[in-house]
Design a protein around this nucleic acid. Sequence first.
DNA 1: TTGTATGCGTTATCAT
DNA 2: ATGATAACGCATACAA
Lengths: 349, 349
Amino acid sequence: MVKKATAIKTKVSIHDVAREAGVALSTVSNALSGKDNVKESTRQKVQEAADRLGYRVSVVARALRMQRTFTLGVLLADVANPSSPDFLRGVEDMAERESCSLLVCNTDGLLEKQIAQMHVLLDRRVDGLVLLSQYCDPPLVRELLNSGTPFVLLQRRSRQYQDDYVGADNHEGITAAIEHLVGFGHKRIGLIRGPTESTTADERLDAYRIAIERLKLDDDPALVIQGNYQVDGGYRAAREFISMSQRPTAILAANDMSAIGVMNAASEAGLSIPGDLSLVGLDDIELASYARIDLTTIALQRRDMGAAAAALLLDRIRKKRKKARQVLFPMKLIVRGSTGPVPSKKKSR
Amino acid sequence: MVKKATAIKTKVSIHDVAREAGVALSTVSNALSGKDNVKESTRQKVQEAADRLGYRVSVVARALRMQRTFTLGVLLADVANPSSPDFLRGVEDMAERESCSLLVCNTDGLLEKQIAQMHVLLDRRVDGLVLLSQYCDPPLVRELLNSGTPFVLLQRRSRQYQDDYVGADNHEGITAAIEHLVGFGHKRIGLIRGPTESTTADERLDAYRIAIERLKLDDDPALVIQGNYQVDGGYRAAREFISMSQRPTAILAANDMSAIGVMNAASEAGLSIPGDLSLVGLDDIELASYARIDLTTIALQRRDMGAAAAALLLDRIRKKRKKARQVLFPMKLIVRGSTGPVPSKKKSR
DNA sequence: TTGTATGCGTTATCAT
DNA sequence: ATGATAACGCATACAA
């Protein structure tokens, strides 16, 4: 059985195709990359020769020659964090349109690791960088960011610099959540805030404080507890809230993962949600919608945000745009079963 | 303020360093890549010059020259699927040790997309391919796989070929789960199987059938319903099970996502788990451990499996090993709250 | 419209 | 121990 010689061979070069087609090497390049300076008949001849040989362009060689790798680097804390993949998909969707691939690096939220990964990405000469919830202000990071490779910040804003940025309207989201709770009669609302390095967490705290003041709710510093965007942080914060003599009747969690921690703590303490405690998450990761979780939460359009970030980045790469642009996405409150009326007095312990 | 000239410049080449250090270009290469044929004093001189200039090697140029990109391609159905990121982290952990980066491609489970992505990866001359639950037998795929780039199958085995492969001992896992259920008195156990293309799903079905026969349980074809590894498939299958006149008292779900679908359907039907229905998942994704979910499940060591796959792949790349190797990981039953005794007769409708 | 020549930034081979 | 030089596979400026 004679196999058709169409098997892909990565060792076949443009030289071989040129020889096979009986034309010059540059003609092959022009023909295959769709330039208009080649006769249609030659193009076909070349195409056939290429197919016959199983020729495939080497993106590596092209990258060296063009000084463009068609690769974007993505820095994130951890792909295994449920909200990361959605952003990633968005970035990928957009990148793919421009034939760009993604190099993904995990930093585990450590500055040191992030810097190491940035070097990896820069050494690979990525065309651009997407920084998803990462450090962007430390001098060592800035130095790398200033090396000339375009970048965009996603879900994280610089405190000092004007950069391309895609984020969410945290004020809107937090306000809507608090108004929703107030509608149920809650006046004492606890906040589990995100890590201190997170500017996003800062913005949410601001929004919380503004709403508390405007709506004349309990303004007690003890009502703000530090979390870490993880289940365990939410759990610990919730235990603290639950053990307070004047316990909040509702909790606003930094994100859905933290909210899960609250649910775990509530189960353990025998408190029902929303019977004894109302709970609002943030992110709207898929599990928030599961019947058993049924979490009221503030939704983020992660995939769209990822796509927007990639679009911003690609635009900057293409047009060498100088001016920074910012894109803010709306946040939407998704009301599910974890929020309800304030428990009647007699039930409070 | 004079800035120290240590800012990274990707445009500085090895030539510049050679000039700065006053040595030959090849000496710079040798010095910087840690070869032993350069005097220590020159190495230092070179290193200093490189630092002064902010020189960083171009992995692109190196790749072209060495015919090795230090990049692995990973094909998966969807990063946003909760079990994918864990495998991915494992692959990354191991790849990083060999200075390899990861190019990640989503196929959405579509053959056509997978082939397109394989071309992307091959055109980029990745050193190896990790196929995570993907098609590996279709002729078009085989043709690409035969192009000479090493690859490893993860969580998917070829029906026709001997390849490097990392998987789990499905027989062990399924058997343990069924024995656990039998211990609770269950005799009528429904199975939601995975998609037909999945060899993993096949193996699990086999294990189920063997156990059913060995333990003399209800052997009814209606007890096997097709799912799709997703919540919706599990939901539909569960609705079908629930509406049967002779409903199973326990369900073995293809994976945890399917089990979530079962939970959703049970909630809707007013059935309690495990009161009315016992449920076992498979994967042990993080959410299975949340208090509200509390799912008995068969755990997969995903991160370790990913690392093992990468190790196999890297070994093959390095040693140009010919013989195929297979690594099987144990599956471990994690007993949580979703399984319990068979409901008493009077409660069955 | 086609062909020739050059260089992208490395590593490797071979002299010295 | 160091240096000169030749690829690696491609795109492009320029010549024909």
